[in-house]
Design a protein around this nucleic acid. Sequence first.
DNA 1: CACCACATGTAAATGGTTACATGATTCT
DNA 2: AGAATCATGTAACCATTTACATGTGGTG
Lengths: 167, 167
Amino acid sequence: MARTSTLTDLEAAALAQVAEKGGATSYAVARAFAQSPAEYWSGSAGAVYPLMERLLKRGWLQANAGAQGKRKRTQYQITDAGRQELEGWLGDVAGAAGMGMDPLRTRLAHLGNLPEAKRREFLNSVRAELVAQSAVPAWPDDQRLQALHASWLANRIAWIDQLERVL
Amino acid sequence: MARTSTLTDLEAAALAQVAEKGGATSYAVARAFAQSPAEYWSGSAGAVYPLMERLLKRGWLQANAGAQGKRKRTQYQITDAGRQELEGWLGDVAGAAGMGMDPLRTRLAHLGNLPEAKRREFLNSVRAELVAQSAVPAWPDDQRLQALHASWLANRIAWIDQLERVL
DNA sequence: CACCACATGTAAATGGTTACATGATTCT
DNA sequence: AGAATCATGTAACCATTTACATGTGGTG
């Protein structure tokens, strides 16, 4: 029942955005990525515009080509097939339980290459940076995402505090 | 003082491997990635062989071309410049405090697209999968990495347990 | 009108991926 | 000797990236 998804995570996130807003343009989707505190995706036009076309061609989005004005202005909406695909991706437990790409964890795995003093300093600095991030609401306009992000940060800080024993 | 690194995370991890083992072939580095439980990098030859060449050309690795037998068999070692570069990457606090790419977090952000019942089921399944992973030592041969990985898993499970309040 | 922010793309480069080819070594 | 496995690559493809080009609508 693995139902391994045919969507990249960026595609899935874009699809989810369209679903949640009940329709969006490529620009709106790109802007949302660009403004998110997650630095992993740039939210560049070069990524998003072709991506939306792909989703359209695969039948997961439909285009209400609202040619308002003279320039093309494509409003996308999710289709039933798209919703199904999205649910498949959301429910992909194996994918969700994967390790992903964690810049802190990757560094911790190789921290032995740093002298003891620098190791401590590094951990202290990262911890301080995370605390600083906690002080600034990342999504002032979305309470759920804000709460999720806050809990992620808090958990990360807790991890660092526990690490002393491991290192 | 940001010292933003010129290394990709894969390059840095490869460099660190060479440093820790006191020298390695491209094959050894690739195999290490392939065997790691982190699924994010495939550890494919197509990634690693060219990568090692890049690091060599930039002066961060040196090649002891032990032409043993008839086929090329290149043993790489880290240079002083490479060590410095690696330390720069390791100490990059801004990078380490970033969000990276977390397949669970990405899904949680869009879990509203799933009906309530499926949401619970999803969380339960992911939690169970993480618990299952905890039972199998991921690095039987490296106690430090094993401990780090175990603490990562434990922390992740704790996060899921706390999420009930957020969702 | 001039300018600037908003919006819609395209082009070239990058750093990965999978799949393939093939040489060398070890096992039966 | 033949087969399996270890090892070293290369080729084609892919989803991104950065940088650029350009149209459009509102504001001084």
